[in-house]
Amino acid sequence: MKLKTKRTLIDVPNSDDTQALLTFINENKAHLAPWEPTRDKHYFTKENVQNLIKDYQVQFHNQTSYYLAAFDLERQEILAMCNFTNVIRGPFQACYLGYCVAEKYQGQGIMFEVVEAGLNYVFNELKLHRVMANYIPHNTKSARLLTRLGFEKEGLAKRYLKINGTWQDHVLTAKINPHFIDD
């Protein structure tokens, strides 16, 4: 699976991408910490990144989650990550969206470009009906991104996820496949 945007090549990382993912995770440790679960020092090791990549590949082949890295066009550097996880089939046909952008690429529209391409893939190729994305209320950048992508607010979940060591409320949003036709 490979997607291409104007500035990125989007793909599930493989073993050849270990150094690029390790660099992305380590260079953005402080930048991403306020929005992620608390990570122990093992998370930032090459061994862990190799295991993450193996897991990403397994989940892709099992069609249960799609962990996508947005590389530069030469596939040397990861600019952002976009994840469609916990894919549920049957009558629900849905998944969760997660994303992050490298600190040095913030404010350049990279995240919009990458998530938009990912949404097109899950709606048009995977034929999912619904994508859900949740954000911490004070994360105004995520709020703006999701609104721009057409996500609608559906509610507020109190103490929803333990982020950076604290149970955080989250705004619940979703986007319905605009091309979905009932069968």
Rank of each mutant, 00 (worst) to 15 (best):
R75C: 11
A80T: 01
T64F: 04
P91Y: 06
S65L: 07
R89N: 08
V87N: 06
Q93M: 15
A70I: 01
N62F: 07
C82R: 07
N83V: 01
I88C: 09
N62T: 04
Y67D: 07
T85R: 15
P91N: 06
C95R: 07
E77P: 08
Q63A: 13
E77H: 08
Y66T: 03
C95A: 12
Y66M: 08
A69S: 14
C95S: 09
A70G: 08
C95T: 01
N62V: 02
S65H: 05
F92A: 14
Y67I: 06
S65D: 07
T85M: 15
R89G: 11
P91G: 13
A94L: 14
L73T: 00
Y67N: 12
L68C: 09
D72T: 00
A80Y: 03
E77V: 03
Y96N: 13
Q93G: 08
R75K: 15
E77M: 09
I78T: 01
A70S: 12
T85H: 13
F92P: 13
S65V: 06
Y66D: 04
T85C: 13
E74K: 05
R75Y: 04
L68F: 05
N83E: 02
A94P: 04
V87W: 13
A80L: 04
E77I: 01
F84I: 01
F71Q: 02
Y96S: 12
F71V: 00
N62Y: 08
C95H: 11
Y66R: 15
A80R: 04
I78L: 13
P91F: 11
L79E: 05
G90K: 02
I88K: 09
C95P: 07
P91T: 03
G90V: 03
M81W: 11
I78F: 01
Q63T: 08
L79V: 07
F84L: 12
N86R: 11
E77A: 07
I88V: 11
F92K: 12
F71L: 05
E74N: 02
L79R: 04
I88G: 10
C82P: 01
I88R: 10
S65A: 14
Y67E: 10
Q63S: 11
C95N: 10
R75I: 00
C95V: 03
Q76G: 10
A70F: 08
T64R: 12
I88L: 09
A80N: 08
S65G: 04
L79W: 02
C95K: 09
D72R: 01
L73Q: 08
Q76F: 01
Q93F: 14
F92S: 14
N83H: 08
C82Q: 09
E74W: 00
T85S: 15
Q76T: 00
N62Q: 09
F84W: 09
R75N: 11
I88H: 13
L68W: 07
R89I: 00
P91V: 03
L79T: 00
C82W: 01
C82I: 02
V87H: 07
Q93K: 15
Y96Q: 13
F92H: 10
I78Q: 02
M81P: 05
Y67F: 14
N83R: 12
Q63V: 12
A70Y: 10
A94C: 14
V87F: 06
L68R: 08
A80I: 00
L79F: 05
R89D: 03
Q63N: 14
Y66W: 06
I78C: 05
F84K: 11
N62W: 03
